[in-house]
């Protein structure tokens, strides 16, 4: 049997970089196995992924009732959600949450990665310490940080040393969202830090050497070599963070159930509550369709970038 194309050594590259190969297949038996291997995946993707996605679009025009059956209601679900003032509140809260995660959380892993890459000793320990919170399960995180944020907890004890009166970080509406952002940054920045660290360490050392000989100081080396070299990685992480934080609801649900006074009611939580508290699946799916339209655009941008980078 003769093979017309031989591929090798493209491990770790994206699928898009691989040029399409036309291969002369000489065996019917081989094709039969090939199709046989694809069938289970195709069936499962249709039933458990494409079907829900399409049902989502269809049911946004229906009143979903498991007992009496579904009835077509036209645009009623959309009219209902647009007339609900909580929709705009939840969009506002989500944007506020995304904004906070950017200013509080986004730069932390970049700075930490550059700093840790310069450590001469204990670099491995610093890496492990930074990443360890990431493996803490969500439910443990909530129990842990409820106590950390307690009016008689350790954070208030620390602030008390500076004469600050105890603050109810979680239940005081002014601090609720910020407290969630700090908690999630604590948990998640280590994983982003490891990605950036790999980026920092892949920059050739002799670039710094050359810059130093040309008289560039430490800050200009960071500004003109390190950060530009990581530019595409930083932009990619930014898009991933925006896609991720725009769908956030679990911490808000677990710690506060969207309260106090709906200040932590994010868009995704609003969707979840429509479906699983009010049992209005039609309106819930309509909210999902709207989210899909907005995030789909971001997804395409990210895909375009991935294509350039990998």
């Amino acid at each position: 049997m003769e093979e017309s194309v031989v591929t090798s050594g493209n491990r770790g590259t994206g699928p898009e970089t691989e040029p399409q190969k036309v291969r002369r297949t000489s065996s019917w038996k081989k094709n039969m196995w090939g199709y046989l291997f694809l069938v289970p995946a195709i069936v499962i993707f249709i039933i458990f992924l494409w079907l829900p996605i399409l049902k989502g679009i269809v049911y946004s025009f229906y009143n979903v009732d498991f007992v009496k059956g579904n009835t077509f209601v036209g645009l009623d679900n959309y009219v209902k959600i647009f007339n609900n003032p909580d929709l705009w509140l939840s969009v506002k809260n989500t944007l506020y949450f995304m904004f906070l995660t950017l200013i509080i959380g986004f730069w932390v892993p970049i700075v930490a990665a550059i700093a840790i890459s310069e450590l001469k000793f204990f670099q491995g320990f610093a890496r492990i310490a930074a990443y360890l919170p990431f493996v803490v399960p969500g439910v443990v995180l909530y129990g842990m940080w409820r106590w950390m944020y307690d009016p008689v907890g350790p954070i208030n004890a620390l602030l008390g040393l500076f004469g600050v009166e105890p603050i109810s970080f979680i239940s005081d509406g002014r601090f609720s969202m910020i407290s969630i952002v700090f908690m999630e940054t604590w948990q998640q920045f280590g994983s982003a830090m490891l990605i950036y660290l790999a980026g920092v360490l892949s920059i050739p050392r002799d670039w710094y050497e050359a810059a130093e000989i040309d008289g560039a100081g430490v800050w200009s080396r960071i500004k003109y070599i390190t950060l530009p070299a990581m530019r595409s990685l930083i932009v990619l992480m930014l898009i991933l963070q925006i896609i991720g934080t725009s769908q956030a609801y679990q911490s808000q649900l677990a710690l506060l159930d969207g309260g106090p006074n709906k200040v932590t009611l994010t868009y995704a939580l609003f969707t979840v509550k429509y479906a699983f508290t009010q049992l209005d699946y039609g309106a819930g799916t309509a909210l999902g369709v709207l989210m899909f339209i907005v995030l789909g655009i971001l997804g395409v941008i990210q895909f375009k970038m991935n294509r350039e980078d990998y």
Binding site: I47, F48, L51, P52, I53, K55, G56, Y59, V64, I243, Q247, Y249, A268, T271, V272, A275, Y281, G284, T285, G288, V289, M291, F292, L295, G296, G299
Partner: peptide, 13 residues
């Protein structure tokens, strides 16, 4: 397709 956007139809399915 963001997973949260089809979470509810997924449950219904």
């Amino acid at each position: 397709i963001p997973a949260t956007s089809y979470m509810i139809p997924n449950f219904v399915n």
